[in-house]
Design a binder for these strands. Structure first.
Lengths: 120, 120
DNA sequence: ATATATTAACTACAATGTAGAACAAATTGA
DNA sequence: TCAATTTGTTCTACATTGTAGTTAATATAT
C-alpha cells in the first residue's frame, strides 16, 4: 500500500495566482492592483468578489496579512487595504508551484520559473 | 434566477495535475498509473475518490475520453478504463499552464518581501 | 469454493471559485 | 452644502472542485 504524508492543504489555482500577484506587487498590493495584475498577465477576467473572498480565506489560513492604509488625496481615494504574503504563504506557493512544475515540465510551455522557485 | 454559464471554465489545480499526467502517460493512463504518476512526481497523496471524480468531471466537459480495455493476465487483472486527453483538454491545459506561468515568471524579490513582513 | 489483490464507481461533504449588489469614503463642482 | 462621481471594500448566494471513505466488480491463488 502506498502511504505518504498528508501535510498542509493544497492551494487552488486562483489562490496561486493571487499569492503570485502579491509577490509581484510588493508594497503596492491592494484590491484593485492585485485584480489588475492578474487580469493583465493572464488575460482572464477576475471579479471583485472572487478576489476579496480568496484574500479573506488566505488571510484566515495565515498565508497573507493585511492592514488598512491611509487615504490618499485622489478623487475617490478611499483608504486601501494592503496585503502582504507571509512566510507560510510563500512556503505554500513554492510547494504548489513546484508540484505543478514537476507535472507540467515537458508537457506544456512551462518557463523555467519552477527551477527558480525551487532554489529560493 | 439561475446563474448563466459562461465560456470555457478555468481548470482547478488538481484537474491540471490530472490532465498533465494523461499527457505524460499516454496509452498507459488508467486509474492506478495516473494516481501513482501524480503521487510520485508531486509527493502529494491522491485519494482514489478524488481522482475518479475528477476524471469523470473532465470527461463530462469533453476534456478527456475513456474506454474499457482488455483484462491483462496479472493478478487482480480486472479490465482497466483507459483515459486519453482530447484536443479541447489539451487546449485548456495549455491555457491554464500559460496563465500560471505568466504570473509566476520573474517572481523574485523575496528578500524585499520578507523585510516588509516585519512591519505588518 | 472462498479468500484476497486489484481496479472502478458511488456517496457525501468540505473547500474553492465566482458574480454582482450593497456599502463606504473621499473628491468634485453647481 | 450636497448630489453626483470615483475608488475601494464587504456581503450574499450559489456553483464548481477537491477529498475521504465506502461499496462493487473481476481477476488470481489456494
Amino acid at each position: 500500500m502506498r502511504k505518504q504524508k498528508s501535510g498542509p492543504k493544497n492551494l487552488g489555482e486562483f489562490e496561486i495566482l493571487v499569492l503570485a500577484a502579491l509577490v509581484r506587487l510588493g508594497a503596492d498590493a491592494y484590491g484593485v492592483t492585485i485584480r489588475r495584475e492578474i487580469e493583465d498577465r493572464t488575460g482572464r477576467a477576475v471579479s471583485v468578489g472572487a478576489l476579496y473572498s480568496t484574500l479573506a480565506r488566505l488571510e484566515e489560513k495565515g498565508y497573507v496579512g493585511s492592514r488598512i492604509g491611509a487615504a490618499t488625496a485622489e478623487r475617490g481615494g478611499r483608504a486601501k487595504r494592503h496585503y502582504v504574503i507571509k512566510a507560510e504563504g510563500q512556503a505554500q506557493l513554492q510547494r504548489s508551484a513546484t508540484a505543478l512544475g514537476a507535472m507540467l515540465k515537458g508537457v506544456s510551455p512551462w518557463p523555467e520559473i519552477l527551477n527558480r522557485l525551487a532554489t529560493l
